[in-house]
Each structure stands twice: as structure tokens, then as C-alpha cells.
Design a protein around this nucleic acid. Structure first.
Length: 419
RNA sequence: GUGAGUGUGGCGAAGGGGUUAACGCACCGGAUUGUGGUUCCGGCAUUCGUGGGUUCGAUUCCCAUCACUCACCCCA
């Protein structure tokens, strides 16, 4: 039987890889300009890190983790997201000891045991940024701005930043209790999913697409959390919005927005484009560092899906690829030209000129066809007669002009021609 | 995890229980002597995801399995 790749994984073929490289270059450039530095953490971590960090009631931890026992009977897990690992590294390496704000970014594969569909894989890739050590609303605004700037930089259109605040350890429990109190009497009327949500994460009720559930929510007069924030959260959130406006970062208040991970506090946002799922998302996580064993340290970050960004880009007709032409194609006219052709190739390549030849024994005519397909600028023909005259036959495929150039000047001429 | 659909050459796609599995694109070769496009000619699936079953006979029917797609859950 033919070998197949594991479900939900993908091969990145030549051509696609170029998009990825360019995307990563854009991310690096934008984040570097804001003084963020790259960090690389392991692709797998102790299972406990995610159970504690991401939260064991979340779907990610409860049913989507790639967890294994290694040969030392330790339970390890392929990381399902990037934040937990970065925060762990921050704590373990005592980066908080620098006394400054840590601004970090990363790329890499993430793993979630899910049923694959469009824009959803078991191994997928994210870029992301994390800022540890500041709870200033201004940093929220900076991070949100950057998360959008990257997508714009990649070339995506019709982007929307959906913004919300999900409160903190002070106001969220109060709101949660209120929801449970008002909705429990109507529990039986809710859809099965919402009944579960009521127990696990009542905030999610706002996400339900079921009209009946939404009606019940209205009738029960259940407030959105953003409308009942404690004073500190209110003040913080107002400031974030104020800065965003000043910075001219467009956003839309989305009171029903909830993020899936337990660690989010206060600011939460998602970036979407009509007709697609979320492309990037982020939020503040003020309790996470402490949860993982570090000193109380506020944090905020976001992650973007590389496959998703590239998918949307492709659907919108964009690409990061530029047509890569071949500078010179060396055509071998006969056996006698073989050796010299190799010498010429070495010379051209040594100068950084992109050059190639045929290795399948094609006829000269076919070699020209191949050169045409590779969009070569020049074809250098080498055979017995060229060796006799000491001049290579060089044809410019763009204008069809053909000349004889002495071998010693060949590389110079081509170098000039491709500029 | 739940529900539904799909699976034919590199790609797109027709077909249908029975001697040689359409077609298009791509690809390869040729159209007299060492040259690209177009056109023309020729070539290119012992085989219809995989395994099993029904049958005289299956790629066409059934079952299983794998993969993909869509919706839900959830999410980047």
C-alpha cells in the first residue's frame, strides 16, 4: 500500500514553501520594528504545563491533546498552542529578572487532535507574540495593532478586529454566578450544547447560534460581561479603546466574544475576514505566569494561523510569491559540448547567476522548449562549433536576438544582461 | 467526538456488473540538416484509494478501512 501522511498533516511543496518564508519574513520585520525578539521553545512539553496553563476544562486539553508517555514514563504533550511554552520558558529562565518588559515572538508547529477540515489541521502552524511584565492598556493597544499590521502586511483585505473584555478574577466570577443563577431555571429550554456550556463556561452561551437560546438569554436579562466589569477592568478597557482610536486601529466591539482558553483576562480579540474563520486571535492573561510558578506578572499576546492567513490570501487572489526566472539555460548541442557546459555552469553559478541545464538527454529543440518553460532569459548553446570558434552562442529569449560571445566574456555579458 | 458526502492516469473529469476505461489540460517524442510560441501527427491508466464479500464475471453492488470535503462541537 502506498504510504500516506498522517491525517491532518500536510506537505509543503516547492513554491508553497516560498510563501511561508516570505510570511515569516514579514512577521519578523514588523515585530522587530517594535523591538520584539524571537524565542524558540520545545515542540513538546510536560503534559502538566498545558493542563495547568491552558486549563483542563478547555476542549484543547480535555479532548484535543497529542499526549504520549515517553520511555521514562513521563507524560509529554505536543504543544497545542504557543503561549504556555513561552511563559514556561520566561519563568524557568527567570527573564523577569531583567526588570524590563519581555517582548517575544515565535513561529512553529502546533498540534491538536481534531477532525480536519478546511483551515483546520492536526499539525498546523502559528506565529505569535507575547509581552510579559506590563498591564498598561497602552501595551494592549500595541499588541492589537501589531496583530493586525501583520495580516495587512501579508496582504489580506477586509479584516475586522473584534474586541471585547472578559473581565478578571474579580468581576468574572460575579458575572458567572449571575448567569448561572438567572439561566438555571431555564436550563431545560436551552439546547444541549448550551446546557453543557452553562456548566463549563457560561460565557459561551453568547456564542450559540440557536435563536431560541439567544431569546432565553434576552428574556433572562443576562448582561454581557463587558457591561458589568469591575472598575479596574472598566478603566483599563476604556483606555485600550481610546488608544486604539488615537492610533487609528479599526476595531469593532463584540460583546459576545469569548476566547476558548482559561487563562484570558480582560482584553480579548480576534481578527477575521468575512466568509472565513478566525485568522488571528489574542488576549491578556494576567494570572498565567503565576499559575506556572513565576512571580505575579501580567501578560498579553496573540497568535495567528499561518495556514489560515495563506488560505485567505489565496482566496482573495493574492500571493507572496514572485515569479522566479532562470537567468541562463545552458543547452548542450552535442557530446563535445558536455564538459564545457559544466564549466560554464560552474562559472555562472559562482557569480550568483541562476543557471541550469538539461540532464535528460533532450534534443536541442527540446532544450529550448524547456528553457522557455523555465522562463530563462538566456540560452547559452555549447557544442562542437562553439568550441571551434571559442565563442558561445547566446540567445536572448525575451527578444529572440542571438549573438556569439567569446567564452572569457560570457559571464560578464550575462551578468549585465540580467540587471 | 457526532452527522452527511466524495475517492477513476500528474491535474480536471465521463462512464458503468461483461471482450480494448471517454475527453480536456499537463507531460514526452516528431513534423529532413543545432533553436523557444501556435498548429499538426504520435505516445502516455494490465487499471478505477485499500482490503474483503456477493457474482460465471466488478472499477461499477455490499461491508470494512484509510484519506479528503462539508456541517456541528471547538478553534489558528
Amino acid at each position: 500500500m502506498e504510504m500516506q501522511r498522517p491525517r491532518g498533516t500536510a506537505d509543503l511543496l516547492p513554491g508553497q514553501v516560498e510563501d511561508w518564508q516570505r510570511l515569516e519574513a514579514i512577521v519578523t520585520k514588523i515585530l522587530s520594528a517594535a523591538n520584539y525578539q524571537e524565542i524558540r521553545t520545545p515542540i513538546f512539553e510536560h503534559t502538566e504545563l498545558f493542563e495547568r496553563g491552558v486549563g483542563d476544562t478547555t476542549d484543547i486539553v480535555s479532548k484535543e491533546m497529542y499526549t504520549f508517555e515517553d520511555r521514562g514514563q513521563r507524560s509529554v504533550t505536543l504543544r497545542p498552542e504557543g503561549t504556555a511554552g513561552v511563559v514556561r520558558a520566561y519563568v524557568e529562565n527567570k527573564l523577569y529578572g531583567t526588570g524590563t518588559v519581555s517582548k517575544l515572538f515565535y513561529y512553529g508547529p502546533m498540534f491538536r487532535y481534531e477532525k480536519p477540515q478546511k483551515g483546520r489541521f492536526r499539525q498546523f502552524h502559528q506565529y505569535g507574540a507575547e509581552v510579559l511584565g506590563s498591564e498598561k492598556p497602552a501595551i494592549d493597544a500595541e499588541v492589537i495593532s501589531l496583530s493586525l499590521r501583520i495580516l495587512v502586511g501579508i496582504g489580506l483585505k477586509n479584516l475586522t478586529v473584534e474586541l471585547n473584555s472578559v473581565g478578571c478574577s474579580v468581576c468574572r466570577p460575579v458575572h458567572r454566578a449571575l448567569m448561572v443563577e438567572r439561566l438555571t431555571p431555564h436550563k431545560d429550554e436551552l439546547c444541549q450544547d448550551c446546557q453543557n456550556r452553562l456548566e463549563k463556561n457560561p460565557l459561551r452561551l453568547f456564542d450559540c447560534k440557536n435563536d431560541r437560546c439567544q431569546a432565553i438569554l434576552r428574556d433572562a436579562d443576562v448582561p454581557y460581561i463587558v457591561d458589568v466589569l469591575c472598575d479596574d477592568c472598566r478603566t483599563h478597557f476604556d483606555a485600550v479603546q481610546r488608544y486604539l482610536k488615537v492610533m487609528d486601529v479599526p476595531f469593532r466591539l463584540e460583546k459576545g466574544l469569548v476566547r476558548g482558553l482559561d487563562y484570558y483576562t480582560r482584553t480579548a480579540w480576534e481578527i477575521t475576514s468575512p466568509g472565513f474563520t478566525t485568522i488571528a486571535a489574542g488576549g491578556r492573561y494576567n494570572g498565567l505566569v503565576e499559575e506556572i510558578g513565576g512571580p505575579p506578572t501580567p501578560g498579553i499576546g496573540f497568535a495567528g494561523g499561518i495556514e489560515r492567513a495563506l488560505w485567505v490570501l489565496g482566496e482573495q487572489g493574492g500571493t507572496l510569491r514572485s515569479s522566479e526566472r532562470l537567468d541562463a539555460f545552458v543547452a548542450v548541442a552535442d557530446e563535445g559540448g558536455e564538459g564545457t557546459a559544466m564549466v560554464v555552469l560552474e562559472t555562472l553559478r559562482g557569480r550568483g547567476i541562476r543557471a541550469d541545464r538539461d540532464y535528460q538527454g533532450r534534443s536541442l529543440k527540446s532544450q529550448f522548449k524547456l528553457a522557455d518553460r523555465l522562463q530563462a532569459r538566456y540560452v547559452v548553446v555549447i557544442g562542437e562549433s562553439e568550441l571551434q570558434s571559442g565563442k558561445a552562442t547566446v540567445k536572448n529569449l525575451d527578444d529572440g536576438e542571438q549573438r556569439e560571445i567569446p567564452f572569457p566574456q560570457l559571464a560578464d555579458e550575462i551578468e549585465q544582461g540580467i540587471r
